[in-house]
Design a protein around this nucleic acid. Structure first.
Ligand SMILES: [Mn+2]
Ligand SMILES: [Mn+2]
Ligand SMILES: [Zn+2]
Ligand SMILES: [Zn+2]
Lengths: 141, 141
DNA sequence: TTCCTTATTGCAACTTTTTGCAATAGCATA
DNA sequence: TATGCTATTGCAAAAAGTTGCAATAAGGAA
């Protein structure tokens, strides 16, 4: 759980607090490494921290995402999933079989710059999901 | 409501049926022109078609999206919104004040081709939301 | 027009996510 | 180490979204 404690200074610097609930949720995400749903996270977290509630899990995930410690993604079923914030990347997902692959942010860097200069917005999030058909599923159409 | 009836052949060609519920929902989306939540759509639709249920609205929206008559989008709060499928476009939204702007798909066309050749996937959906800070909100940081 | 197949709907029960509020507990300060 | 401010949590109730199943009705065929 020391991995999670490392985040404390980041939070304190912004006037927030590190709590057992936040530690636990960060710990779960850190060691999973993959996208997890709030319910997945709740199930794991309650093993490590008896008494944690679903409400807190939802609120904490939103909080951690706002503060850049985790990233959320829509993987097509209309539900959000979360992962610890590591390298910047995006996803491509097959509408048919659900297979996914990662796309490095470098591939989108130029587009991001174009969008920024065209719109005046500064883009802050880099975790987009593109949908399509994987090579296999393209055959059987 | 004739606008909605125009969609009937598209559905029948695929073995589906046009129903009062589908007509009404298409009618609502067609005349709104903007992104609407399922609840918004339900509230409007029930004025035009007494007795329509929320269940049907959710199922119909998913059905229409699968068949390309409407598009769904995640606008950041974790909830889906829907709109009638017109020109291909994307969105940029401000994380701070919520302001949005549209981005023509032409701006992403090259990226889409790159992603397709790099991944082997054929990208089918073009309705992505990018998040950032609008010009105004960049000042007050 | 009538009949028949089966796609579609409504209902009810259930799961997931959100919200207001009072109680709790980080952590900065002394 | 003790104190106080207020960020954070848990609880309970509500809102949003999903699912199984029996009843209904669209629309092709006769
Ligand atoms: Mn990811
Ligand atoms: Mn749109
Ligand atoms: Zn596939
Ligand atoms: Zn803004």
């Amino acid at each position: 759980m020391t991995c999670a404690a490392d985040y404390a200074p980041q939070l304190r610097a912004r006037g927030y607090r590190m709590t057992p609930q936040r530690m636990t949720i960060l710990h779960v995400l850190h060691h999973s490494g993959k996208h997890l749903s709030p319910v997945d996270i709740y199930e794991q977290a309650r093993k490590e921290l008896h008494g944690i509630t679903e409400t807190t899990v939802y609120r904490t995930l939103e909080f951690l995402a706002e503060n850049g410690l985790v990233r959320s993604a829509h993987m097509g079923n209309g539900h959000l999933v979360y992962e610890i914030a590591r390298h910047e990347h995006h996803h491509i997902k097959c509408r048919n079989c659900g297979s996914e692959m990662e796309v490095d942010h470098a591939l989108l860097a130029k587009l991001y710059r174009q969008l920024e200069s065209a719109s005046g917005y500064r883009l802050t999030d880099s975790h987009v999901t593109f949908f399509g058909l994987c090579p296999d599923c393209q055959k059987g159409e």
